[in-house]
Simulated scan of single mutants.
Amino acid sequence: MPILEVKDLSVSFIQYTSGLRQQNLQVINNLNVSVEKGEILAIIGSSGSGKSLLAHAILGILPNNAQVGGQILYKGKRLTQERQQDLRGKEIAFIPQSVNFLDPLMKVGKQVQTAVNHGDAIAAQRKAFERQNLAPHVEAMYPFQLSGGMARRVLVSTAIVSGAEVIIADEPTPGLDDKVIQEAMGSFRELANQGKAVILISHDIEMALQIADKIAVFYAGTTLEVAPVADFTNDGEGLRHPYSKALWKALPQNGFQPIGGSQPMPNQLPEGCLFQPRCKCFSHECISNRPDTRELRGGLVRCNHAC
């Protein structure tokens, strides 16, 4: 059983347009994804595809004008608002994209210590800082005294010391050099090997492939494919969805083959398949019918023609 499972998630926001007219903007539609203990799930997709919103929905930190549908299950039980509040930072830890999540008025060592739920907080913080190559004196510094890379390593340390069962990392590596990136990825792999579940949100498919067990491909607020990492090889013939194949072939080492068009905005979603305006394989069925997610060859895909 997955430790965390998202079923048909939808997220919309109530907004007001000119003339104070109210509209409901749908930004996530029928999104499905799951992660098991000991597994790293990497979520990739362009900006605006719903990656960070998924993390915020799981944690229950969406803004007040958000409306959420579908189900999010943790250990087989639905994550209600009360459970989200109880589990956040304890059993479900978050490494945010922005370093502004650090308290500017508290020394970073103390901030990491407050995330420790069991055992010696100071010892756990210092061990985590050593693992992240943060010098001992860094614990006495304030966030404004840190470089961007150091601040991100502090955030990673906060999740590590929490003892959480699920760690959600939202773009944890920007601003880090290659050596520190490899060390951070090693920390996530170590956590997974200890039985934790890690959700890694990233634009960097190459980095994700180095560490993940499976890849979820997001597009326009939904999941187009979930595939084992082993399927991202050769010319991508093991992949199921045309968009996944296009992402793979767009990498420089795979021919750098771009596709036309762009991801639609939430208020301009096409009828039928969300990818069909850019797909060379679309048919009348793709225009009139939005496909459901189905299992195929050990993965999941949302496509009428995948085989």
Results as ranks from 00 to 15, higher is better:
P2N: 05
P2Y: 00
I3K: 00
L4V: 13
L4G: 05
E5I: 00
D8W: 02
S12Q: 13
S12M: 04
I14L: 15
Y16F: 15
S18H: 11
R21A: 13
N24T: 06
N24M: 14
Q26Y: 03
I28W: 08
N29I: 06
L31S: 07
N32Y: 12
V35D: 04
G38M: 09
E39S: 06
G45R: 09
S47M: 12
G48N: 12
G50F: 09
S52N: 07
S52L: 11
L54S: 08
G60Q: 12
Q67F: 07
V68P: 10
V68D: 15
G69H: 06
G69E: 12
G70R: 02
G70L: 07
Y74S: 14
Y74D: 13
G76Y: 03
K77S: 14
G89P: 11
K90N: 14
E91F: 07
I92C: 14
A93Y: 10
F94I: 11
I95T: 06
P96D: 05
S98H: 11
S98Q: 14
S98N: 15
V99W: 11
F101D: 10
M106K: 12
Q111R: 02
Q111Y: 01
A115W: 03
V116H: 00
V116M: 03
G119E: 08
D120K: 09
A121T: 05
Q125G: 01
A128L: 08
A128H: 04
F129Q: 04
F129P: 01
R131C: 01
P136S: 13
V138Y: 11
E139F: 08
A140I: 10
M141R: 15
Y142N: 09
Y142Q: 07
S147F: 01
G149C: 05
M150R: 04
R152E: 05
V154C: 07
V156Y: 01
V156L: 06
T158G: 12
T158K: 15
I160L: 12
I160R: 02
A164Y: 02
A164I: 06
A164D: 00
D170L: 09
T173Y: 06
P174C: 08
G175V: 07
L176M: 01
D177E: 00
D177Y: 02
D178G: 06
K179C: 02
I181M: 07
I181A: 07
Q182K: 14
A184R: 09
G186K: 00
G186D: 04
E190L: 01
Q194I: 00
G195Q: 04
K196V: 01
V198E: 00
I199Q: 07
I201M: 05
S202R: 03
L209C: 13
A216L: 08
V217Q: 04
A220E: 02
T222R: 04
E225Q: 05
A227W: 05
V229L: 04
A230S: 15
F232L: 11
F232W: 15
N234V: 02
G236M: 08
H241I: 02
L247G: 07
L251S: 10
L251H: 09
Q253G: 00
G255C: 12
F256A: 12
Q263A: 15
Q263Y: 01
E271V: 04
G272E: 02
C273Y: 03
F275W: 13
Q276G: 05
R278N: 14
R278W: 10
E285N: 08
S288P: 00
D292G: 05
R297A: 12
G298H: 02
R302P: 02
C303N: 03
